[in-house]
Design a protein around this nucleic acid. Sequence first.
RNA 1: GUGGCCAUAGCUCAAUGGUAGAGCCCCAGAUUGUGGUUCUGGCUGUUGCGGGUUCGAGUCCCGUUGGCCACCCCA
Length: 414
Amino acid sequence: MQPLPGFRDFLPDDCAFRYALFARWREVCRGYGFVEWDAPVLESTELYTKKSGPEIVGQLFNFTDKGEREVAMRPELTPSLARVVAAHERAFRKPLKWFSLPQCFRYEKQQRGRLREHFQLNCDLIGDASAAADVEVIALAIDLLRGFGFTASNFVVRLSDREFWTDLLREQNVPDERWSELLQVIDKSEREPREKTAERLGPLAAAVFDVLDGGGRSEKLEALVRELDARGLAEYVKIDLSIVRGLAYYTGVVFEVFDRAGALRAIAGGGRYDNLIAQLSDGAVSLPAVGFAMGDVVLGDLIKETPEIFARLADVVSRQSALDIYLVIAKEERRPEAMRQLQQLRDAGWRVDCPLAAAKVGKQFQAAEAGGAKITLLYGDEWPSVKMKTLATREEVLVPNEELLQRLGCSRGR
RNA sequence: GUGGCCAUAGCUCAAUGGUAGAGCCCCAGAUUGUGGUUCUGGCUGUUGCGGGUUCGAGUCCCGUUGGCCACCCCA
């Protein structure tokens, strides 16, 4: 039996890797004053169709529950965010700086960097429509990657502005109902032959290509870059108006983060969505918002492909999961005393393991090594003293058992 | 959802249509109280699954499931 397609088993190393990612994400987010929240994994299907239309159902893990409710595993967190914010916004001072680590699901054919299940970091700043909020959120996205040791040689944030394009469409007297279709064409233009794009754009082609070829200037984005430059982060960003993003709900600045090599899918993406909360709450609450999401799959791939970054994270992981102490029971008749001390050591907060059954001393030392223990305590003929060995140096010293905790407490803090 | 490539031991991979193998991992030993190295031995396969062609199929053909890649879509 294998896991379902697009779903992953997390063996201990994978789990450790995942939680190392989460730990760093949390740390950086908290450094920006963001607080963690969460919502249900299962939501009403309507929550998603309301935002994206009925077509979205084809991409959902959805079903009818035993109470005849149409439900879906969450494909993303933003609709839940809008729902929660609309219901509870009065309980919080603005702006809200919220992050979450949801596991999200989508019914799609899997490929590299795109599974049917993934974890993503969502960061949203709600209730502030200023450019300063955009800057804060983009700086956070950059620092999340810098937090793993990535530099401007590893990734780039491509900045764009939906408003720039909607202004252009308005100037060209394009009716509103065609905007989303044309924005999609522009979004796709990078990956398609120029003639095809030109054909789809029709009379707009000249104006659009002029912008894509570098003829477009966005005062707003240039100001944004200056603000990032003031924080010393300008080297991580690049204005690129060809970024539009597929989602219809973005209303202003949008951005995507890519690896410099361009080998992977987007590492993160987001933007400003000032109307979505009002739309999903039927106008009950209207708050501007800006946010982004960063998935664990693509970021994990990038980390694994960047040896120095991976080594650093692996080092953190191995330190976090390692034992402190392994008890070697050289004489089985000393097991009762060893078990009493085992409990005392664990009560004192040490990570301690020992063999469950009689085993050769050599095997026990191998188990100590494999568990990453720094110290072994050997229980045998020396009792009432135990032989304490520092594995790294192979130094051994006899310690009276009643002095053990004190001795450990003095010599090794955690 | 569409198309192309792939599928052999737990892992990485060999094997002209002619007796399924290696390395790693794991387990056990190297005269019984000391680990990373070394040496010896052991374990594991319906060659993804189901059909077909053939004296004979891991190898060729069809189907199916799964993986990879490109589309679609991208939260």
